[in-house]
Computed example of a mutant assay.
Amino acid sequence: MSDVTIWVPSETRDRLAFVAEAEGMSLRAWLDQLAETVRTPAERAEEAERTRQILLEWTGRDPAASDVDADAVLARRISETTSTRPNYSPFKPVTNDVNASALTVRP
């Protein structure tokens, strides 16, 4: 397998390397694992449909159908949770860093 260089911001490279190290893996091994496990939108949609069918069979209720009462409870809980953490985001903002660093994956 040949190596490739992917240009990403240095912060992205550092974050990926940090996550890989925390998993006890090299960056190359972690990226290989990611590539093996990440799903395309079509694959996720297929899995969601299979899951919906299983839940429909188990419960007799279509989880994709709107339930006004359940939707209201969920909306209230989301509102309560986010109101106590107004600036919370599990994701850092994406920046277009013109000084991107190369991410070269080697064994």
Rank of each mutant, 00 (worst) to 15 (best):
M1Q: 14
M1G: 14
S2C: 11
D3H: 11
D3Y: 09
V4R: 09
V4G: 08
T5L: 06
T5G: 02
T5D: 03
T5H: 04
I6F: 04
W7D: 15
V8W: 00
P9H: 01
S10P: 10
T12R: 08
T12F: 07
R13V: 01
D14V: 04
D14L: 05
L16D: 01
L16E: 04
A17N: 09
V19Y: 06
V19D: 09
E21M: 07
E23I: 06
E23A: 15
M25E: 08
M25S: 03
S26V: 00
S26G: 12
S26K: 03
R28Q: 13
A29R: 11
A29S: 11
W30Y: 15
W30C: 07
D32W: 06
D32F: 10
Q33P: 08
Q33E: 15
L34E: 12
A35P: 08
E36D: 13
E36L: 13
T37A: 14
T37H: 09
R39K: 15
T40S: 09
P41S: 05
R44N: 11
R44Y: 07
A45K: 08
E46M: 12
E46T: 10
A48D: 07
A48Y: 06
R50D: 14
R50Q: 08
R52E: 01
Q53R: 12
Q53K: 10
L55C: 03
L55H: 06
L55I: 06
L56R: 08
E57Y: 07
W58V: 09
T59A: 05
G60I: 02
R61G: 04
D62C: 05
D62G: 09
P63Y: 00
P63E: 00
A64T: 12
A64N: 09
A65N: 07
S66K: 15
D67P: 05
V68W: 15
A70G: 13
A70Q: 14
D71G: 07
D71H: 03
V73P: 05
V73S: 10
A75G: 06
R76W: 09
R76D: 13
R77Q: 03
I78H: 09
I78K: 08
S79W: 03
S79R: 08
E80K: 01
T81P: 02
T82I: 00
T82H: 00
S83F: 02
R85V: 00
P86A: 01
P90Y: 02
F91M: 10
K92H: 13
K92Y: 11
P93G: 02
N96A: 14
N96D: 14
N96E: 13
N96F: 14
V98H: 15
V98Q: 15
N99P: 03
N99Q: 05
A100E: 03
S101G: 05
S101P: 04
A102E: 12
L103P: 01
T104C: 08
V105H: 00
R106V: 10
P107M: 13
P107L: 10
